[in-house]
Write a protein that binds this DNA or RNA. Structure first.
Lengths: 145, 145
DNA sequence: AAAACGTACTTAGCATACTAAGTAATGTGA
DNA sequence: TCACATTACTTAGTATGCTAAGTACGTTTT
């Protein structure tokens, strides 16, 4: 039964599977996949406000608030009051967070290679290309602004 | 900066955006996207055990347990003891759950059309095709068994 | 300068997923 | 038939995301 599943089911399901794989591979580093993305982003963006980080990752400020709370608790990032704007803070990596950058990058490369191996490089390239187009069409921004 | 984001970022991000859109569209029905998938699956599978449902959707039994708890609380599905196996239950749609089937299906069609409009039918078709291939390569099963 | 509006952040409650751990019942093999 | 492995399910704890609601501060407008 179920000869032609709806198209978005395939997208959600394949993304779930890939995220699960990512979670497994990041386990030894003690962080989740989204935390890894934020650490990586902060590594490239330098010291930024939480609001800007939320925009860069296209999540709500509420979500980024809990995320940064977790990252601070884990000792990966630090917060200092923004001298220019008393409402906000500036976030940056701690030494511990910075120490994870190269390992995170290795996982990034591994997971891409893993998926490319599973699917074939051409097909995975095509998948990424179309996924990027969908993201842009739906209005998502990308980290790095 | 960030000239070439890693490929899986695009996949996760586009899936997030599409799921968010789906969540919005299902809000009036009072259910989340995964609940809708389970109701839909149950509509096609008939009366099945929770374990079988979990396998069909490629989630853990623990996840399906909380999911069915939610659906029962919402009055969408019902549970009766399996006469063949005292350990398990048999799950099936209630009238209320069954009443949602056509609306869920309409949302399914709408969201596919929405994405196809945003991206172009050919490209969305290609995206779905490659996503399906990745899912299969990563070992995911599909609802309906 | 006071009122209004907008922005930064937090907290609470809900939807989902996972792992780990525990209970119950089935099935199997000695 | 007794012991062990397997299977069905639940519960607790953690990771994430969202919306709604509230606080505090900055900016604009009268």
């Amino acid at each position: 039964m179920n000869a032609r599943p709806h198209l978005f089911h395939l997208l959600l399901h394949s993304a779930d599977l890939l995220e699960a794989e990512l979670t497994r591979r990041l386990k030894p580093l003690g962080i989740g996949p989204r935390q890894a993305q934020v650490i990586d982003g902060l590594g490239r963006m330098g010291e930024v406000s939480q609001a800007r980080l939320a925009r860069a990752f296209n999540v709500t400020q509420a979500s980024m608030s809990t995320m940064t709370t977790r990252l601070i608790a884990g000792g990966h990032i630090a917060r200092r009051p923004d001298p220019e704007d008393t409402r906000g803070n500036l976030l940056s990596l701690t030494d511990k967070g910075r120490g994870l950058l190269s390992q995170i990058d290795a996982v990034w490369r591994d997971i891409d290679r893993f998926a490319a191996d599973a699917l074939g490089a051409d097909r995975f390239e095509a998948l990424a290309h179309e996924a990027g187009a969908l993201r842009d069409a739906l209005g998502g921004k990308r980290p790095g602004d």
